[in-house]
């Protein structure tokens, strides 16, 4: 059979549509990651707090987010929120909120880990130099924490990008859904198009995630303590 399913990719605007789907997935993941960094930093600092109530609340939040599958959270924010309160979020916004809640929890835990890894003598040396507690945090603890943190945070980005494949279930047409649309459209003429389309999506995910993952490696090497 001379008809290659490969041709399907270049028919009409199909390839552009796939790239558009990838972009949808990427911007939701990246925007959520940016918000997660902003929210996760204070959360991580708070998690090292001595107040038991604060610690308990944050620990509870982290565990709750961790045990719930992201898919459940997506349904809660897209459908259940409307059932209960009448508030109607766009699927993209619901996805952004869910990924931010998840990212904040994960990020907070990473920050907590990075801070507690700073040895006590670093604090003591800071105080010995006459720095105020806030200055010790700002100039001694946080810079060192951030170095430990960066590679881990970048890893979280790639996990987020991959998890965006779930958002199709609340009606966001991301790269995987575009792929399914193309496959179904050509189901009768090119039954083997699925192979080509999925291979292309694999490549697109790889092209998106590989540089990010390399960045994590590079940072890890540069910041090696």
């Amino acid at each position: 059979m001379p008809d290659l399913g490969l041709n399907v990719l270049f028919e009409g605007r199909n390839f552009v549509r796939l790239l558009g789907g990838l972009w949808t997935a990427l911007w939701i993941a990246l925007a959520a990651m940016a918000a997660s960094v902003v929210l996760g930093l204070p959360m991580g600092v708070l998690m090292t707090s001595r107040h038991r109530l604060v610690k308990l609340a944050l620990r509870g939040y982290l565990e709750a987010i961790r045990v719930l599958p992201q898919l459940v959270l997506l349904f809660v924010f897209y459908f259940d929120l409307t059932y209960v309160t009448g508030v109607n979020l766009s699927p993209e916004l619901a996805a952004f909120i869910v990924f931010t809640l998840w990212g904040t929890a994960e990020m907070g835990d990473l920050v907590r880990g990075a801070i507690t890894a700073i040895p006590l003598h670093q604090y003591q040396s800071g105080y010995a130099l006459g720095l105020k507690p806030s200055q010790v945090q700002a100039f001694v603890v946080l810079p060192q924490s951030v170095r430990r943190l960066l590679p881990l945070a970048v890893n979280l980005v790639t996990r987020m990008v991959k998890t965006t494949s779930l958002i199709v279930l609340i009606g966001v047409t991301e790269v995987l859904k575009v792929g399914q649309q193309i496959i179904d459209r050509n189901r009768f003429q090119y039954p083997d198009a699925a192979l080509w389309v999925y291979a292309t999506i694999f490549l697109l995910y790889f092209l998106a995630c590989f540089p990010i993952s390399r960045l994590a490696q590079t940072l890890e090497r540069r910041f090696a303590v």
């Binding site: 600092v45 708070l46 001595r50 107040h51 006590l120 604090y123 507690p133 010790v136």
Partner: peptide, 12 residues
């Protein structure tokens, strides 16, 4: 260790 960090918690 925690004794040193606790003062900042309220502000954060």
């Amino acid at each position: 260790m925690p004794t040193i960090r606790s003062p900042h918690s309220p502000r954060v």
